[in-house]
Design a protein around this nucleic acid. Structure first.
Lengths: 126, 126
DNA sequence: TCGAACCGTCACACGTGTGTCAGGGGTCAA
DNA sequence: TTGACCCCTGACACACGTGTGACGGTTCGA
């Protein structure tokens, strides 16, 4: 799959895909002519990246999280330094905080919507 | 409570508090001399704002969400236009997506950490 | 050969956050 | 009164990260 197809599949501009590669979030093989060539799974990976970016994580952190997502976990043990693990723990906790904050506020919005919708008379205000 | 105390309580610079006010996220009463004066509850509000910003929501959206959080909901019915409600629904759904994305990835990180920690021999790699 | 798709790169836009400066005032205590 | 704090406004500039537009040039496929 070349960059155009990945772009269409993920709804992400080619420009941005190159940017993600520049930031080290995705990698690509290259044809002899220099064209990027992507694995099928990259599509999901890109969507995941976009989700995390949208959730406020910077690329620097996402880059560290992504290796945790690969299925055959066997390979990644060696490169897990104590510092890396500490960083991951910290990030995991920050993600948990984000989740709780979002849930609280999401529920508040939900509740508000319910209240407004059940009391369908704006001019009553009570 | 004046801006200095609010700044200390929330760990937010005075500069940034004025910025939030400029963006319409918080309001302040003014003493005759022009000093900003804040209610006790503003501290929580500021922390909430910072949490939402950290979770990737722009000030524009946060401004619309904040009124949903006030307890005596009675007052806000009148200014709930259909467009506003639609926006809130959309935002609620986007928050839900963010939450799910974060939970997925947080769990993956957690699982990764568990796996690495139980297999305490990096050089084995299996 | 022609158009579509790709390449790398430069430059910019936007939002959040910060520092700082000038120029003004309020409050309190020694 | 003086000094040490606190606060006000407005403005300029900057940093950083994400995302985009546009450039000229190359390669592919019909």
């Amino acid at each position: 799959m070349r960059i155009g197809e990945l772009s269409e599949r993920t709804g992400t501009s080619r420009r941005l895909l190159r940017y993600y590669e520049e930031q080290g979030l995705i990698v690509s093989e290259r044809s002899p002519n220099g064209y990027r060539h992507y694995d099928e799974r990259l599509a999901d990976r890109v969507l995941q990246i976009r989700g995390l970016l949208d959730a406020g994580l910077p690329t620097r952190i996402i880059k560290q999280i992504l290796p945790c997502l690969d299925k055959p976990r066997v390979i990644h043990f060696p490169d897990a330094t104590p510092e890396m693990l500490a960083t991951l723990e910290l990030e995991r906790d920050r993600m948990t905080e984000r989740i709780e904050c979002l849930i609280r506020n999401r529920n508040a919005v939900s509740e508000y919507l319910d209240t407004v919708r059940t009391n369908r008379r704006p001019d009553v205000a009570a």
